[in-house]
Design a protein around this nucleic acid. Sequence first.
DNA 1: CGGGCTATTGACGCCTGTCAACTACGGTGG
DNA 2: CCACCGTAGTTGACAGGCGTCAATAGCCCG
Lengths: 245, 245
Amino acid sequence: MIRFTQIMPVSLHTINREMHERCALCRIRSYSFCRALGEGKLKGFTSISAEKIYTDKQNIFLQNENSDSLYNITEGNIKIYQLLSDGRIQIIGFLYPGDFFGSYSKKKYNYSAESIGKTKVCIFKKDLLDAYLEKNMELAKELLNMTSHELMLAQDRIGVLGKLNANERMAKFVINISQQRSRIGWQDNPVSLPMTRQDIADYLGLTLETVSREITKLKTSKLIKVLNSKQIYLLDKARLLSLCH
Amino acid sequence: MIRFTQIMPVSLHTINREMHERCALCRIRSYSFCRALGEGKLKGFTSISAEKIYTDKQNIFLQNENSDSLYNITEGNIKIYQLLSDGRIQIIGFLYPGDFFGSYSKKKYNYSAESIGKTKVCIFKKDLLDAYLEKNMELAKELLNMTSHELMLAQDRIGVLGKLNANERMAKFVINISQQRSRIGWQDNPVSLPMTRQDIADYLGLTLETVSREITKLKTSKLIKVLNSKQIYLLDKARLLSLCH
DNA sequence: CGGGCTATTGACGCCTGTCAACTACGGTGG
DNA sequence: CCACCGTAGTTGACAGGCGTCAATAGCCCG
């Protein structure tokens, strides 16, 4: 058995703060489901969660693993994806700070989750969170609200993948990224694309070649400016919006 | 002002039963979110809801209408769909008895809903349901459970539309219908297809011609037997399953 | 500067959409 | 009872958008 106290280079003061004030100090709380909790409840809430930091391309969990935990992003990005038996990948979504993920209703995870860049998450054991919800109705309702909102976003994505062509999907993608950023108080233009072209392709149900071509088309038709491969500027939001309905 | 008492051909006894025992007598309660409520609470729950019957192809609500109500199907089928500005349709889902729909988190409906055949729904005013949830934690948690489950299904559909070809989508579709039926205690084979080919196409992100061709292919490769255009028998579930991953 | 990864661009082919003709079926009316 | 009509579904011919395969360019990091 490993005795952590020997190898963790943190002062008692830091541990104390970590143990009790993490939620109180959290900068994205106002964008997370925990915003439903009053200040007085934050210490108690911190105690039923743990924080974990991931570097680039680490798995948070894998599809079909037993799911005993739920997660909240506090920093960085996560991609959630499903694997088909022949190796094809579908990226379900790119998640941002404030996003909640995991599987509340099921015993196994329905998708895999992987960090994009340095990423911080809060981890909640399902049984602990569940017990906490019993006594904190406001949190349960906020969770219902957020899940319902996520469902709406998923339904929009069904529309994108079912009916839009490559051109329209790409326009929708950059518009969505921009909107997502402003939702959590970041500048909405220019936007950074932390994921690779292959990731974008697997997200939009296209190939990376098509994604690349469509970006070039948006560029030549003066709808966007490509600052570098991971940074683009939206030149004409109105036309981009009209493109993706 | 119309005085309903004059034109509604129901006895006081029927009204009384309708007013207090609808939930207690409901045959699909065990498949609905209201299964979370104990027998003792059913009369109270009946009183915050209303029942409405639709014939074929009637709108329950339209996309972008103000959303003040939530719905639960007790009989028949509903299709929920989004319209693009150029008239293209994406069917988000076909709903079955026990399914809950509407928009809990948003002020406007995110999609339109239309009946398929004769359909019965329970209608809940949002503010009434919300107040009821405050005092009945078990119902709120069941609603969270169901919404979370629906989210999972929506994410699966993202995978279908993003990565499967026409062949695989069609196989997935008949498998899903079969599973959906057994979930609510109906025979899972043969299955009826209450929707049109066009509806299936708009659901799968294909055209009706492609849907028709793929059904023919499944037929000629002895995976299904087409009893009539709205009734099919799954001959080889194992191979159908392996087809759609 | 060079190796390896990511992104772009080109050539070509296939899957699925489009357009059109034909068939099947169910309801209506003579 | 059958003729007629309208709607739904099937099948065929063809075209185009996007995938596939391959070569090239750009970029980061040692």
